[in-house]
């Protein structure tokens, strides 16, 4: 039932990506996200796609996992397609029966879909190869410069606990769904009213147990004298190696390349999605 959720799960293994310093991986994640969000044109996207495929191979994540993690995207894609079909009125008009759709609506949707795939793939690789605890430490380290303003430690602790509880809550969901299914709840079929009831029968126990759990955890932490404001030392030390630097520098070069590409593309007035869209408005 819920077992097909793969997004955000750590997959234990010992690949090149697993061994990279989490801080390096976090920076890579940022770099890739930026790259995906700037309009880097066709060549750029193809290159980025290839880089992503190489990353997948290196991290030994099965294709199956990737496809499964992309599943939740469908709904969003349909939504975006509908919006695009309504809003975008540029490009070649195609007539299908009485409706007229514009080529750019389709292309724009495909572009967004491609970006989303890249985005989800990047985060999948990151979370699949980095232990939640390491993610927190990396966040704490990288945002250390914010220390005078916010308590970075509390923030990272919160993030790590939240991450830690995702699988637990999924398991819990699974368990409660089974228990309610045994009491005759049908989560798939049924009228709207029945659906609403079946969701309630899932959500309420889920919340109750989540609150109970967090309460217990808070007590357990306090019982072990946890003080968020205390100065603390670290048990786990991260180690930055040469390969981390190399990978990071390569990625930055890639990013710089892409930015150059994007700028030249804009200069050439390449039909970027955003510009098309804006132009569409002013027509």
């Amino acid at each position: 039932m819920m077992s097909n959720v793969t997004l955000g799960k750590y997959i234990p293994n010992n690949t090149f990506f697993h061994r990279l310093d989490p801080r390096c991986k976090l920076l890579l994640l940022f770099i890739f996200m930026i790259t995906i969000f700037i309009n880097i044109g066709m060549i750029g996207y193809i290159t980025l796609g290839l880089v992503m495929i190489v990353c997948f191979i290196l991290s030994k994540i099965s294709l199956f996992t990737v496809i499964k993690s992309l599943k939740p995207m469908w709904f969003m894609m349909v939504f975006i397609l509908v919006i695009n079909l309504i809003v975008v009125k540029t490009g070649t008009p195609w007539h299908i029966g009485k409706i007229t759709i514009y080529s750019n609506a389709i292309f724009n949707t495909l572009k967004i879909a491609y970006r989303l795939v890249l985005l989800i793939s990047t985060s999948t690789i990151f979370t699949a190869t980095t232990k939640p605890l390491d993610i927190t430490i990396a966040i704490e380290d990288l945002f250390a410069f914010l220390k005078p303003i916010v308590n970075v430690h509390i923030l990272s602790m919160m993030i790590s606990i939240a991450l830690r509880f995702i699988p637990t809550i999924l398991d819990e969901t699974n368990r409660i769904m089974k228990a309610q299914a045994s009491r005759g709840v049908d989560f798939v079929h049924g009228k709207l009213k029945e659906k609403a009831k079946s969701i309630t029968s899932l959500i309420i126990p889920l919340f109750v147990s989540a609150f109970a759990r967090s309460d217990e955890l808070a007590n357990a932490m306090e019982a072990r004298s946890y003080n968020p404001y205390a100065k603390r030392s670290r048990y786990r030390k991260l180690k930055w190696r040469i390969k981390d630097s190399i990978i990071l520098i390569l990625s930055i070069i890639l990013l710089a390349g892409f930015i150059t590409l994007a700028v030249t593309h804009l200069a050439n007035n390449w039909n970027g999605f955003i510009f098309d869209w804006i132009r569409g408005w002013f027509k």
């Binding site: 368990r175 045994s182 009491r183 005759g184 049908d186």
Partner: peptide
């Protein structure tokens, strides 16, 4: 089936409603 730790499946506002949830379904 009465699950292991079935207490986590209760959700109605009172005990009576919760007990009758299954029969109603």
């Amino acid at each position: 089936i009465v699950f292991q730790f079935p207490e986590y499946q209760l959700f109605e506002e009172n005990v009576e409603k919760d007990i009758l949830f299954g029969p109603k379904n």
